[in-house]
Amino acid sequence: MRSVRIFFQKNDRMKYISHLDMNRFMSRALRLSGIPIWYTEGFNPHPYLTFLLPLSLGFESDYEMMDIRVLDDNFGNENVRAALQPVLPEYIKIFKVAEAQQKPGKIAYSSYRIDFKDLSDELYQKLGDFLKQEEILTQKVGKKGKVKELNLAEKITDCKLTKNGESATLYLTLPAGGADNVNPTLLLKAFGELPFYRIRRTAVLDAEKNLFE
């Protein structure tokens, strides 16, 4: 038995599908694929699968990861890809199947791209200034309902705002994973009213800001 990490994009309509729902749906897809996967033991056996870093509802992603266990050592990574991709909707694109290099606990950052289709010069200027502040205070509600004061400015790295005609794009990296996790919508909400935007996770990184693999 070997552990296999499947890397995929989550595009378009799939953004409306929550993490929990992805789980159920992927479990069916894995059954359909015919990949000799390991089933959990116990009361209700089901295909073992785990998503590495849950993606918020409404986000698209270039860098999603899912771990499964393949029973047959001769069933290679290319076989996994060839078996699974055809039973997935067009909105999910596998771009890599590989042995897991790092443990999920090593995830430290997520990079995002936020696309504004129509951002006025004024708002562009304002958003740029906002991001350059030394302090961006906001409140975050923790798991137990505790409200925590948070300085987002300390959390943002690799921030870049560009404008191209009407549209604008914001790139940034934020802490992600079990230890510290900051959702980019927290930042955008702290700014205030904004026109329509789309959020896309572009990469998941480790503590050294290398691509998590």
Partner: peptide, 22 residues
């Protein structure tokens, strides 16, 4: 399409209305 997307994301369980299921 953008407006529709934005509205869908403003409600509970947008998957009820998004279609495209296998």
């Amino acid at each position: 399409e953008e407006k529709f997307e934005q509205l869908l994301l403003s409600v509970q369980k947008p998957g009820r209305y998004s279609g495209g299921e296998p």
